[in-house]
């Protein structure tokens, strides 16, 4: 009788352990896959916006916005555009036609227009509205690909 009870308790404990492991293991794997840095590459027409930590190179035609939240950004602009410093820390380049490279710990870069090419390495969130395609690479593997969307979908790097 005692053996039977022990057997029952052991089985119950094993069942609980297995169930807990099943719940926790996938979350851990998901968290690990979200760590580190990645590289986003996107091409299209519409609005491309990204914020986060890293280096962003963006080119195309339209209106370019840059925001340096931490005050440590390095900004290099080539091409044409009328620069305006706006309230809230935004810098806008109207009639932009060229390329911009922005590096920093807390930056936002967005380009609204056409023939947009975006390359960003680091960590952050991005939105791509309109027509186009994108991919995110992490450790040499493509971890995310897709099309620019009609609605603003906030996606993550990596």
């Amino acid at each position: 009788m005692k053996n039977k009870r022990l057997y029952l308790i052991f089985s119950f404990a094993l069942a609980v352990s297995l169930f807990s492991a099943a719940l926790v293991a996938p979350q851990t794997a998901f968290a690990e896959s979200g760590g580190g840095t990645g590289t986003l590459t996107a091409d299209g027409d519409g609005l491309a916006g990204i914020r986060g930590n890293g280096t962003v190179t963006i080119s195309g035609n339209g209106i370019l916005w840059i925001r340096d939240h931490a005050g440590d950004a390095a900004i290099t602009i080539s091409g044409n555009g009328v620069r305006d410093a706006l309230p809230g820390g935004w810098i806008r380049y109207s009639g932009f036609n060229g390329s911009a490279t922005v590096s920093g710990s807390q930056i936002t870069v967005a380009l609204s227009g056409y023939s947009i090419h975006l390359n960003a390495t680091g960590t952050g969130k991005f939105v791509l509205r309109g027509n186009g395609s994108y991919s995110v690479v992490k450790d040499g593997d493509v971890v995310l690909t897709g099309s620019w969307t009609e609605d603003a979908e906030v996606l993550s790097i990596p």
């Binding site: 996938p26 794997a29 027409d45 027509n131 971890v143 995310l144 690909t145 897709g146 099309s147």
Partner: peptide, 17 residues
């Protein structure tokens, strides 16, 4: 969880307007 983690999407692109 596998379904939740699936983020890879491939779609045919519409012609650019």
């Amino acid at each position: 969880f596998r379904k939740k983690g699936e983020t890879t999407r491939t779609e045919i692109l519409a012609p650019s307007a």
